[in-house]
Amino acid sequence: MKKTLSPALMIAGCLASSNVLAADTPELIVYAPDYFGSEWGPGPAIEAGFEALCACDLKFVTGDVMSRLKLEGEGTEADAVIGLTTDQTAAARATGLFAAHGKDLSGLTLPVAWDDDTFVPFNWGETAFVYDKTRLAEPPASFAALLDMSDDVKIVIQDPRSSVSGLALVLWMSEVFGDGTEEAWRKLKPKILTVTPGWSEAYGLFTSGEADMVLSFTTSPAYHIIAEEDETKVAAIFPEGHYFMTELVAKIGATDQPDLADAFLDYVLSDDFQGMIATANWSYPAREFEGALPAVFASLPRPDKTLFLPEAEAEARREPAIATWLKVMSE
């Protein structure tokens, strides 16, 4: 097989040669979810911005971050990790791989208090049902009203077993409806057109007109307004509150580049980084400042009430919440 694989390796080598580095530039390896490798996400701007400051090479290694960290354990090459979500922090902390960040987080403008000593938030958002106002004339005014809508209204959600936002929904409902969650799912079920493995498939179904509403984020309409000048997409705001989600950055304790990792955390909190989050990541920056948000973004309706489950609580509720969902949806 060597014979047939070697041309493969040669081609692979040629294709990969673009990231061969000058040997004396220090390299900061940051594990990140796939969207950091995308040209249409914040990755390229972050890389350019930080490299201008650090005289180093910032390398995103994208993919399934937590699985990779767990497989690698102490031997990980990562110096820092970006893009973890609150449903992963308990598992991440348990690996013992992370170091305290030592940063002053008092400048954060999250709608919830954040005093974690390991994980630094860089963005935040809230889950919401997004609809097209040309197709849904009477949007629900509350979560309860959503459940009472006609079963002809069709909603696409994501599977909590494979999607972060899908998991957020089951936790959101458990927080809003408490003991009545099972019943609430029973009322929602006939309106659920289908359940997709990830956010992209669901949002694609929504924009192609297949569904009337989609489980997404309160900030989703900003994309349509800014990039497409389309003001028909709206997030339904519920008085019961919306589920808070944040993405985090942290440094690896055993990093061989502790200073660079530290500098990277500083950069994440800088105006430069925080200012690009809105239109590169279509979410709110964790540290909002004057001018951090385009006007359209700033004027998006925001929920009055934010629902936030601390790590331990979210971890404890995850399995029963998914089980309830599975039970009702399988009936």
């Binding site: 796939d34 969207y35 490798g37 279509w282």
Partner: peptide, 26 residues
């Protein structure tokens, strides 16, 4: 590219397609 082997510079066309979708660019 399986999730664990991904690299900045190895995006294939289907992966770019998913990334476009992930960035709202349907």
């Amino acid at each position: 590219v399986i999730a664990l082997f991904a690299d900045e510079d190895s995006a294939t066309l289907p992966l770019q397609l998913y990334r476009l979708m992930g960035a709202y660019r349907m």
